[in-house]
Simulated assay, not measured.
Amino acid sequence: MFVLKTIDDSVRILPAEQRKPLPTAITDELNRKYSNKIKPKLGLCIRVLDVLEVGDGIVHACLDGSAMFAVKFRIIVFKPFVGEIIVGKVVNASPEGLRVSCEFFDDILIPEYMLKANTVYNKHTSQWVWQYEDEDSGDVQNMDIERGELIRFRVEVEHFNEVRPNALNGPMGPNASTPIPPPAAATPSGTGKELKSSAYWLECSIIEDGLGLLSWWS
């Protein structure tokens, strides 16, 4: 679920930041640039682990006195691999499927076609219900998928989208990053276009045995 990535980049250290020890100033600037942001094809950057190499600084004395450094560093990234099994929490349901959260990452969708067979949507309770049939007795038991329940799911597809930070900036380039919005006070509500337009989202399933609510298999 979490991976270490090595990245080459350059950072600009402003004069006010040059009073700090250089490793601290560089790490702080890298965290401002990467932490809690989506990098295309990379994933959700969490924090810089360490700085491996620092090149000679180039001071722009004719501008503002800032210094540019070429750096190589390692960063912790949230990027589950396809096929990975993860546990999250159900936060919303709609006819399109279930939205799941891993606390710090909410853009996880289990679409209706990746739920278990014989799972139906109850529009009166706004819940999905797995109609489990006992193989021996033939009895059918309704297993409600309620909000707040812990759910085990499998990552099937990861999606990256180019987004527009605002109308003036235009589409993002391949090396741009997208900030993650701060957590909202309300529960994430979208399971359709809103979620699928996110810069990075996961499409998951609970079809296989052992997947679904943890309470089903306890």
Results as ranks from 00 to 15, higher is better:
Val3Pro: 00
Lys5Arg: 11
Thr6Tyr: 03
Asp9Tyr: 05
Ser10Gln: 14
Val11Ala: 01
Arg12Met: 07
Gln18Glu: 01
Gln18Asn: 00
Lys20Gln: 12
Thr24Asp: 12
Ala25Ser: 12
Leu30Val: 01
Leu30His: 05
Asn31Lys: 11
Arg32Cys: 04
Arg32Ala: 10
Arg32Met: 10
Tyr34Pro: 02
Tyr34Gly: 05
Asn36Ser: 07
Asn36Tyr: 14
Asn36Phe: 15
Lys37Pro: 05
Pro40Leu: 14
Pro40Tyr: 13
Leu42Lys: 00
Gly43Gln: 11
Cys45Gly: 02
Arg47Gly: 04
Leu49Gln: 13
Leu49Glu: 09
Val51Gly: 02
Leu52Asn: 11
Asp56Tyr: 10
Val59Cys: 09
Val59Thr: 14
His60Phe: 14
Ala61Leu: 14
Ala61Trp: 06
Ala61Phe: 12
Asp64His: 02
Asp64Ala: 10
Gly65Phe: 01
Met68Thr: 11
Met68Asp: 11
Met68Asn: 11
Val71Ala: 08
Ile75Thr: 04
Ile75Trp: 09
Ile76Arg: 10
Val77Cys: 03
Phe78Asp: 06
Lys79Ala: 13
Lys79Phe: 07
Pro80Cys: 11
Val82Glu: 14
Gly83Leu: 10
Glu84Ala: 13
Ile86Phe: 08
Gly88Lys: 02
Gly88Asn: 06
Val90Ser: 03
Val90Met: 03
Val91Cys: 08
Asn92Pro: 00
Asn92Thr: 15
Ala93Gln: 07
Ser94Gln: 04
Ser94Met: 00
Pro95Thr: 07
Pro95Asp: 02
Pro95Trp: 04
Gly97Phe: 03
Leu98Glu: 01
Arg99Asn: 02
Cys102Gly: 06
Phe104Trp: 08
Asp107Trp: 13
Asp107Gly: 03
Leu109Val: 13
Leu109Phe: 12
Pro111Phe: 02
Glu112Pro: 01
Tyr113Cys: 09
Tyr113Val: 06
Leu115Phe: 07
Lys116Asn: 05
Asn118Pro: 04
Asn118Arg: 15
Asn118Cys: 10
Thr119Leu: 03
Val120Gln: 06
Val120Ser: 08
Lys123Arg: 12
Thr125Tyr: 09
Gln127Met: 14
Trp128Asn: 07
Val129Ser: 01
Tyr132Asn: 11
Glu133Arg: 15
Asp134Tyr: 08
Glu135Lys: 13
Asp136Ser: 12
Ser137Leu: 01
Gly138Glu: 02
Gly138Asn: 03
Met143Asp: 03
